[in-house]
């Protein structure tokens, strides 16, 4: 706390930004947050929060499988999340898979994660326990420059794809029957979106951890939906709120080292959601 409070804010900010680990966190974090906000809006609109939840557990199992096999953690992360995302989309057939099927499957995948954890910790040093915690709860201050840049590029690519399919996806999400009649490839968009969601979960896991992905995905999007019913404005707002939570969370965790950054980021996102709910509660009926 002293670092920011002792000096004036500008100097404090400058000293914070001079730290390479903070810069990496901001570069990677901003891109990841923007992507999460964007994807999160559709997740909430399509009622696929539970599928996203399942994918975050898949991310954990995938990352630990890669660690146990001794390869780059991100391979396992993305392979597992994108693969299972596609699978959920294809199994669901009519757009969304059954909650029970999702729950059953991800409960088992988590069991696999425990197996990989046992394999990994049995074979390695004490660092391995820390790696496990990082996968579960993230370590945005531990991201290397290369990892941050890669994460930012992947996020940029995913954002571009999502913007390209945004309009048909919105149509298919709100009114699948009419969209299908008008020639929107509804059956293609469902699995494609879940694959994008999977990749997003993989990205966000690197920042806030597999278990806390939801703070970035659901909270800003749900807050934005409470503030406006205009879909395009809500999309922009979700992105802005997610990025804001990321920046403020990083700054807060830097200023108060006792607080882990994953907690501050997710906590602030949840606070945004609570604030939006309160605001909406006070200003009923809805303005437009």
């Amino acid at each position: 706390m002293t670092a920011l409070l002792a000096a004036d804010p500008v100097t404090g900010l400058a000293s914070m930004l001079s730290q390479p680990f903070v810069r990496n966190a901001l570069v990677g974090g901003t891109a990841i947050a923007a992507l999460s906000g964007l994807v999160g809006y559709f997740v909430v609109l399509r009622g696929q929060v539970f599928a996203g939840d399942a994918l975050s557990h898949v991310a954990y199992a995938g990352a630990l499988a890669a660690l146990a096999a001794g390869i780059d953690l991100r391979f396992g992360l993305f392979a597992a999340t994108i693969g299972v995302g596609l699978l959920l989309g294809l199994l669901g057939g009519r757009g969304t898979a059954d909650d029970v099927v999702i729950g059953t499957t991800f409960a088992w995948v988590l069991g696999l994660g425990v197996l990989f954890l046992a394999l990994y910790t049995a074979s390695g040093s004490t660092d391995n326990g820390v790696a496990n915690v990082n996968v579960l709860f993230g370590s945005i201050f531990g991201i290397s420059t290369a990892a941050a840049t890669t994460a930012a590029w992947i996020a940029a690519g995913l954002i571009a794809v999502l913007l390209l399919i945004a309009r048909p996806l919105l149509f298919a999400s709100v009114d699948p029957t009419v969209a299908a009649a008008r020639g929107v490839p509804v059956r293609l968009l469902g699995p494609l979106f879940l694959a994008i969601l999977g990749a997003t979960v993989g990205e966000a896991s690197q920042a806030v951890g597999a278990l806390l992905v939801f703070g970035l995905l659901a909270a800003p999007a749900a807050a934005a939906q409470r503030l406006t019913a205009d879909p395009w404005r809500a999309l922009g707002l979700a992105v802005a709120l997610a990025v804001l939570a990321m920046w403020a969370g990083v700054a807060l965790a830097y200023a108060a080292p006792a607080l882990p950054p994953s907690f501050t980021i997710v906590g602030l996102a949840a606070a945004e959601f609570a604030a939006a709910t309160l605001y909406r509660g006070l200003l009923r009926p809805l303005p437009t």
Binding site: G47, V49, S173, V213, F214, G215, L217, A219, A222, A270
Partner: peptide, 19 residues
């Protein structure tokens, strides 16, 4: 249309609790 609002709330609560 979407019925994800309630689950978005639960999801937010869950992420916050884990955090």
């Amino acid at each position: 249309g979407g019925y994800g609002d309630e689950s978005a709330v639960i999801g937010t609560v869950q992420a916050f609790a884990l955090a």
